[in-house]
Amino acid sequence: MAQMRRRVFGHYGIIIGGAVLAIIFAIAIFAPLLTPFDPILDQDLAQKLKPPFWHDSPKYDPAHPLGTDLQGRDYLTRLVHGARISLLIGFSAMIISGVIGTALGVAAGYFGGRVDMIVNFIITTRLSMPVVLVALAVVSLIGSSLWIVIWVLGLLIWDRFAVVMRSTTMQVRNLDYVAAAQACGCSTFRIILTEIMPNVVNHLIVVATLEMAHAILLEAALSFLGLGVQPPAPSWGLMISEAKGMMFFDAWLIGIPGAALFALILSINLLGDGVRDVTAPENRN
């Protein structure tokens, strides 16, 4: 245990990733307390396109350290509220896809044979459908809201959960203690819950971080294309999309939300890589 702790705290990826993620999480929770403005309602066209603090410009207004957008809304406020959307979508879509993918993967890995064949077929079929396109098409047909985006993404990106859970379950299933549990007459459900799951959970965590990052990136891409979260919600992808036309003059409008997105994904990935390194040092490379 002490060795585990040392490994966790000696791992730069976990420390940096965890710290950045914790900060973004805190920002998302306390977003309304951090700035005096509302991300949507407080717009003032007279105040539009104020530059951020590092632009040494007379137009700079200390009330808006990151400037204002095209509608004159405080950019810092929109940025911190955007963290809520990204985290909510990433987390919820990850949970939905995790439940689907784990159920399919564990079933395939545990029962093998025909079940495995069918699950494999479902995975192959799912992989052959282009995610972004199908998501866009569905969202465009049934209308887009935050929860529709979450459900569509969750129902689409379970493939990696299924693939990884299938192979790890298969490995664990062939170990002697599972046979021992079967010999004791434990029910299948009980064996899966008490013998299989604890031994695949570290792989599950790693995939979960990857898929959370994946969902956040997809939401940003959908919103960027205008078919994800709808304006005036402060989604980071949408903020980049809205600022696209101003790229020649006010590139910071794109730079700020993009950098936030990059930092969030980077921290999640670092944490996930770290968990993999720490729980399975032999798989490190």
Binding site: A213, L217, A220, A221, F224, G237, I240, K244, M247, F248, A251, I254, G255, G258, L261, F262, I265, L266, N269, L270, D273
Partner: peptide, 22 residues
Amino acid sequence: AVVGQALPSFWFALIMMFFLGI
């Protein structure tokens, strides 16, 4: 690899456009 995996492609495209193109 770590940086590449975290870059949103549309943002990276715009950044490239800004620096290399504009």
